[in-house]
Amino acid sequence: MTSSQPEQDPKALQAIYTQALTLRDLIWKDANFNVPSTMHQYEALKAKLTAIDKFAKGHLPIITYSNYDLIGSRSSARLAVSQMCAYIDAKFVEHTKEPDIQSVAGPVVNFLLMLPEYGLTIRWGVAAAMLSSLEVITNKKLAKLNLDNSGEFDKRLNRLNTALKERGIEIPVLLLSGLYKVRSKVVHEGKEPTSEEMATIFDILTSLHEKTK
């Protein structure tokens, strides 16, 4: 595990990462896992991570819990813990080489087959992947422009949009407003996006990709 910030403790990060992965695997395998217990563990890991990396807070969602909506609560918990693992992996884990297709295909298929057990669809999985990609792209574009990448996702995307406007590059405002709604729906509520919402996500991705090369 490596870090661009030398003052960070690799052993502490490794411990957080290992615990987060263990928690993620557990709650994806157990259909009836205890949400309050998961929330407690997640918040503890989140506190440790943000103590090391102050920028992590804006990337880690809050688990929404309701005793009257356990399916939604479990979906929220799975997404939050998975997001934490993805954040640590993307920022701190050094990957020496690209994985071969065969090593990736199996987990992807298993993931897609797992979704229906939790009331999720392949469309939801694709949307969640695109939204995660959009967040990564936003962070990379901010870094390329030497801009602050702290804060919640909508603030970071607005910051990027403002910077792009100053450079004569504009992303349609209607697309951005629609994106915030669908992101909350997919990522935080675990609901399937409509065809129009899928188009909004893809249009934003395409716009960022094509206009900021």
Rank of each mutant, 00 (worst) to 15 (best):
P107W: 09
P107T: 07
P107E: 07
N110H: 10
N110P: 00
L112W: 01
L113K: 10
L115V: 05
P116S: 05
E117W: 03
E117H: 11
G119V: 12
G119Q: 11
L120G: 06
L120I: 13
I122P: 00
I122D: 05
R123T: 15
G125S: 09
G125C: 05
V126M: 12
A129Q: 10
M130Q: 15
M130W: 08
L131C: 01
L131K: 02
L131Y: 02
S132F: 06
S132L: 08
S132H: 14
S133I: 04
S133T: 13
L134V: 03
E135S: 15
E135P: 05
E135T: 15
V136P: 00
I137V: 15
I137W: 07
T138K: 07
T138L: 05
K140P: 00
K140C: 04
K141F: 00
K141D: 00
L142Y: 13
L142F: 12
A143Q: 15
A143P: 00
K144A: 15
K144N: 13
L145N: 09
L145D: 04
N146R: 14
N146A: 13
D148Q: 13
N149E: 15
S150P: 01
S150V: 03
E152S: 10
E152L: 11
E152R: 13
F153A: 03
F153R: 06
D154R: 06
D154C: 02
K155S: 09
R156I: 01
N158Y: 03
N158W: 01
R159N: 08
L160C: 04
